[in-house]
Design a protein around this nucleic acid. Structure first.
Lengths: 150, 150
DNA sequence: CTTTATTTAATTGTGTACAATTTAATAAAC
DNA sequence: GTTTATTAAATTGTACACAATTAAATAAAG
């Protein structure tokens, strides 16, 4: 029937399955990311840079919803691995530009195989997957402040 | 049009918005959880214990998708705060039972207000929220191995 | 009964995440 | 031109999250 504490039950939350599904899906990426020696966070940073070639830390943070406290060590690690170059902007020394290196560009050729391999990591019917994709992207737009995109 | 690297674009991923939305929603819980002095992880542990009163670490981990490396320090913190009691099982000393204390039970009365306050943390139309809830719970069931529940 | 295998938590090490502060550089105000 | 405010990264501190290992207890096999 339900008592006054039903609202506190885990099964009635939207947040909890969101939190768990996110973690579980990311966890399923690991074997594939291990093959190219990247963590999930490093991977999404590289995805942005593969697409845009160069971006500063602030822009990267806005795009990925991560702050400098998270990005700084991740970018230093990617620099160590030789996939990105970190260089201060010549016209504004506060800005740090991150650019893909040739080695980083080469990694893209291996990485491009990953999304297909990973398809089965999200155990949903095609229909549900599409629905989920749309709803989450609508939410993302709102978080980005682009709610006008409907 | 799209090139051979389209699969690597962030906007084409399902995982990324899942990852971001999870973090952003949890972040929006913070002001409310601060009021009762709990972190999100501590909160979901308490939610299980408020419902079941007592559970051992292994069961708790299965329920929350967390391992002892995460739970041990969280449970010690909750014990410090006086909300739970940690006691070895008398019939099997390997098992650590976690039980809500009276103080923990008292906290429930304050916490019950939280879910309602938080409603607006997920910026979705009612219809989308219901859809999302159903899809994520289907996914959760599969992760739990209960795929037979349809 | 003793050796071996399994199970449960705890521990260790690495990598995020994020709030809050600090530092340096640039811009704005005076 | 100097003071003041703002901005961008880096740093610091706290709290997960998880893989891998360890330690202790129990169960199974011999």
């Amino acid at each position: 029937m339900g008592d006054k504490f039903d609202a506190l039950k885990l099964e009635n939350q939207l947040c909890f399955p969101l939190y768990v599904c996110s973690k579980e899906v990311v966890k399923r990426y690991k074997p594939f990311l291990d093959e190219i020696g990247l963590t999930y966070t490093q991977y999404i940073v590289m995805m942005v840079l593969w697409e845009y070639r160069e971006m500063n830390v602030k822009e990267l943070g806005k795009y990925l919803f991560l702050d400098s406290g998270t990005l700084t060590p991740v970018l230093k690690k990617l620099e160590q691995k030789g996939y990105v170059a970190r260089e201060r902007d010549s016209s504004d020394e506060r800005v740090l530009n991150i650019a893909v290196t040739e080695k980083g560009e080469a990694l893209k050729e291996t990485a491009v195989e990953i999304p297909a391999k990973i398809g089965s990591c999200i155990p949903l019917e095609e229909q549900d997957a599409v629905q989920l994709f749309q709803i989450l992207h609508r939410m993302l737009d709102i978080f980005r402040g682009n709610s006008s995109l409907r």
